[in-house]
């Protein structure tokens, strides 16, 4: 239809659904929700052309709060579900959200392969270094000596998972880190991630008010990344070796081949049947 009508400008609140979040007051995930709506408004993406996909966790509740298409799937499997959707519907903007447990523990294998596959997806991990939804167990990004969970009273004793480094090693083409306490910086990073052609990984430090109240400190710990976003893998590797996990910004961005289906119709099932005739 070519009706010469102007599409009204979409505002951030147009991307908020009527559903009230289940999150605790003060949870970092609210800032992520707000940044998502602002980034979508900034890009003026049609609500029906966006799909938000998630797994299970407090963070994974986000899609229902956004007025777009969405899929709240199962724990750890958001990336494959989103990959299937994007393969079938390359025309959609597909944004995946979830937590550190969802993405790095139960879904860790999918994380590696999504980085390698480099489909045009945006993956936001709301990292609070804890399992919020199941009431405070250690996650892959939790410090080895964190003793507040009844499951690991002596601490996990495990070296924390390094999301940016691992994404880099797995071949990700865009790696960024944001902070829930810096909403406008977060929106900018999110816009860049959505615009990146390929798999864009955005780790968001998103404090869990309830089970990790000490994460209030993060405000003091974060700092802008002092380096320009590297597109050279050697430079990026050097930076990641000295990364303290609190540097904010685009840490690595590089154009790499994007996995795309080759759908060009050139046959019908009847043509295929003919090959069985003997």
């Amino acid at each position: 239809m070519n009706a010469p009508c102007e599409t009204p400008t979409r505002r951030a609140k147009d991307y908020r659904s009527a559903i009230a979040p289940v999150w605790c007051p003060g949870c970092g995930h609210f800032a992520v929700l707000s940044a998502v709506t602002k980034a979508l408004a900034h890009l003026q993406l049609g609500q029906e052309r966006v799909a938000m996909v998630s797994g299970i966790g407090c963070s994974s509740r986000l899609p229902a709060y956004v007025e777009t298409y969405g899929f709240h799937g199962i724990h750890g499997r958001a990336l494959p579900l989103a990959s299937g959707l994007k393969a079938a519907r390359p025309d959609l903007t597909v944004i995946v959200t979830g937590g550190d447990g969802d993405g790095f523990s139960i879904g860790g294998n999918h994380f590696l392969h999504a980085c390698r596959r480099n489909m045009d997806l945006t993956y936001i991990v709301m990292d609070n270094a804890v399992y919020g939804m199941t009431k405070g167990q250690a996650s892959p990004t939790t410090e080895a000596d964190w003793r507040r969970s009844k499951l690991t009273p002596h601490g996990s004793g495990l070296r924390p998972f390094l999301p940016a480094t691992i994404a880099f090693a797995a071949g990700a083409s865009f790696i960024a880190r944001g902070f829930a306490g810096d909403p406008s910086g977060l929106t900018t990073l999110l816009v860049a991630a959505i615009e990146h052609p390929g798999f864009a990984f955005l780790q968001v430090l998103s404090p869990c008010q309830t089970f990790r109240p000490e994460q209030k400190d993060w405000k003091q710990k974060v700092h802008a990344s002092t380096v320009e976003p590297a597109s050279d893998p050697i430079e990026a590797a050097r930076f990641l070796q000295s990364d303290d996990g609190f540097a904010l910004g685009v840490l690595y961005a590089r154009r790499l081949p994007v996995w795309q289906p080759r759908n060009q119709v050139s046959a019908t099932p009847a043509d295929l049947e003919a090959a069985f005739l003997r």
């Binding site: 799937g73 494959p80 990959s83 999918h110 590696l112 392969h113």
Partner: peptide, 17 residues
């Protein structure tokens, strides 16, 4: 897919589309 956990979720996503 990287495994069957992925493949079944991939087809769910594609079918949703």
């Amino acid at each position: 897919a990287e495994d069957e956990l992925a493949s079944v979720n991939m087809i769910i996503g594609a079918s949703f589309g």
